[in-house]
């Protein structure tokens, strides 16, 4: 037996055909996770009972595995009559799971802005709204850009979890080939290498971005 290179190469087009699906799932999930995470952090800053509750929710999400969340959403939502496609459930699961991490990214990104910045904005008589738009938000975005990019890579590498819900992304396609041909090694190795290459290329891009952000506007 061993590794059949010709067979492996023949499986590349089929698996690579799902790369668009993989990237869009990762992108939509990352946006969803960032939106929920940002909301979590904003509400947490309100403090009080609501803030404590959100802190606990974040801790709970971060203490539980992605796979368990995918099963939970996949099997529990229909129980309450909510029928969604497995792709939707998968994106929801990824968004929810990573929102707990992105909440911390936003927290760190906002806390890293020195207090003097909003004081200077007030001393210049900028309105609160203008201070947020022109002073706080741009600095927050600069602070979170690199960690957000790193989490995008993490989310990308987690998209093959959706194969468990029979979403036809790259790992799903690899398993399709495997179950048709009874040869698992080649398609799985191909899928693995594609993900590895994607992760390395994007991580490299994030690193370069980080270096550029550090170079400009360092204080």
């Amino acid at each position: 037996m061993g590794f059949d290179l010709a067979f492996a190469l023949s499986s590349v087009p089929t698996i690579l055909g799902a790369i668009g699906m993989t990237l869009s799932v990762a992108l939509v999930s990352c946006i969803g996770a960032a939106a929920i995470g940002f909301l979590f952090d904003v509400v947490r800053r309100v403090g009080g009972f609501v803030g404590l509750t959100i802190s606990f929710v974040i801790d709970f999400i971060r203490s539980t595995p992605l796979l368990a969340w995918l099963y939970f959403l996949y099997f529990v939502l229909p129980f309450y009559g909510i029928r969604l496609g497995s792709l939707t459930v998968g994106v929801m699961g990824l968004s929810l799971y990573y929102s707990g991490y992105l909440a911390e990214v936003f927290k760190a990104g906002i806390d890293a802005i020195p207090k003097g910045q909003s004081e200077a904005a007030r001393a210049l008589s900028l309105s609160r709204r203008d201070a947020v738009i022109y002073v706080i938000a741009p600095q927050m975005l600069r602070n979170i850009a690199a960690p957000l990019g790193n989490y995008f890579v993490s989310i990308l590498k987690a998209t093959p979890y959706l194969a468990v819900l029979a979403v036809p992304e790259m790992l799903g396609r690899a398993f399709d080939i495997a179950s048709e041909t009874y040869r698992y090694t080649e398609p799985l190795v191909v899928a693995g290498l594609i993900f590895l290459a994607l992760a390395l290329v994007i991580s490299h891009g994030v690193k370069r971005l980080e270096r550029r952000l550090l170079a400009v506007g360092a204080r």
């Binding site: 590498k157 987690a158 992760a199």
Partner: peptide, 18 residues
């Protein structure tokens, strides 16, 4: 940097083959 879920399947299925 590999996707760990794929690594698991690769080694689970591929090691016996070799």
């Amino acid at each position: 940097s590999s996707a760990v879920i794929i690594l698991l399947f690769v080694f689970y299925y591929a090691l016996p083959v070799v």
